[in-house]
């Protein structure tokens, strides 16, 4: 895949790129379908329920049925909504979510794009989704939707700052923003992965990432007990499905990014386990991160708005800055 990116763009190559894009899209849709099933099942078990078990064997087709329902549902647009923006918002939310997946390397050789500033690309594009969420909330012309959109903007902007600064430590250690090189440079033993040397950065990154995903305990933008459903109250059917899809595609993206940045990507945890192909290790780590996110959702209550802002600005930001400082001092004293 890598060499082909440097060839000139002929019709044949363009066709191949498009096909790979479609393959990734189908994979992601499959992931989203079963991530939702898995989430419902796991949360069910954690709360001593059974979870979905009616549609198909073990309830495996439950999500498929739900998606089908959403697709054939009537598509309503409120009469006083801003029609154009109301239609634009779900697409504007989804496009960057899918776009960020391009830079994620799965193994040494399996990747879609090899950009020098891969990490920056990820962070930059995911910021556009925030705009789409505010836009969706505003275009609905509904006070709950607007409140949800505003909360989302405040939250995502205040947590984007610690998220970016917490990965600066990793960038300093690896000396590059190319995700593939970052994955490559982590060693064969699990204590050489970035999450132990960069433990402060790792913790800040995980907390900020959960907040960026708008998941419990930071799911204030769609706090159902206060805001009905937040920014997507007025959406139904197909467009609602797009917002949900965006949310789960970001789960995929963040889990993959955590794996590559901190958990050694495709490297085996112990050097003698090398014979297992890298993609298996990647998938195992990826699945553990997804499970962790679900586990968190079943465990934590939602925090208050003032606590949210306090945590972001007064705890995470100083911690991540301290991490950058400590990393710089360490690199200066011991590495150089």
């Amino acid at each position: 895949m890598g060499d082909r990116l440097n060839e000139s763009l002929s019709w044949g190559n363009a066709l191949i790129f498009t096909l790979w894009g479609v393959v990734l899209l189908i994979l992601v849709l499959g992931f989203v379908t079963y991530a939702i099933y898995f989430e419902r099942k796991v949360i069910g078990w954690m709360q001593h329920r059974i979870g979905p078990n009616r549609v198909g064997p073990l309830g495996l087709l439950q999500t498929v049925a739900d998606i089908l329902k959403l697709l054939i549902k009537e598509d309503t647009i409120p009469r006083k909504a801003d029609r154009v923006l109301f239609i634009l918002a779900p697409a504007l939310a989804y496009v960057p979510a899918f776009g960020v997946l391009a830079v994620i390397p799965y193994t040494q050789n399996l990747y879609f794009a090899d950009i020098n500033v891969g990490l920056l690309y990820y962070v930059a594009l995911s910021g556009i989704t925030t705009i789409a969420i505010v836009l969706g909330g505003w275009a609905s012309n509904n006070k709950y939707a607007l409140l949800g959109g505003m909360r989302s903007a405040a939250q995502m902007i205040s947590y984007e700052v610690p998220l970016v600064i917490s990965v600066v430590g990793v960038i300093m250690v690896s000396g590059t923003m190319n995700l593939r090189s970052i994955g490559e440079q982590q060693g064969d033993w699990f204590w050489q992965w970035n999450f132990l040397p960069q433990i402060i950065g790792f913790v800040v990154f995980i907390i900020a990432a959960v907040s960026e995903l708008n998941r419990t305990p930071f799911d204030l933008p769609e706090a159902e007990s206060e805001l009905v459903a937040g920014y997507h109250v007025e959406y139904s059917g197909f467009r609602f499905a797009f917002f949900m899809l965006t949310e789960y595609v970001y789960v995929y993206a963040i889990a993959a990014l955590t794996t590559v940045l901190f958990l050694g990507g495709w490297q085996a945890p112990l050097a003698f386990l090398d014979f297992v192909p890298g993609i298996i290790w990647f998938l195992l780590k990826f699945a553990s991160v997804v499970f962790f996110l679900i586990w968190l959702r079943a465990t934590m209550p939602r925090i208050r708005v003032d606590q949210l802002m306090g945590l972001g600005w007064k705890v995470l930001l100083p911690l991540s800055l301290a991490n950058v400082f400590i990393t710089a001092v360490y690199l200066e004293l011991f590495v150089k």
């Binding site: 950009i115 920056l120 930059a124 910021g127 925030t130 902007i157």
Partner: peptide, 24 residues
């Protein structure tokens, strides 16, 4: 100038969100 390009998106996407909130 890929660094400049993505910094441009990062900074201005945030700025646009803020501007939008003020606008609202």
């Amino acid at each position: 100038a890929e660094f400049l390009a993505f910094v441009q998106v990062l900074i201005y996407a945030g700025a646009v969100t803020i501007l939008m909130i003020f606008g609202i």
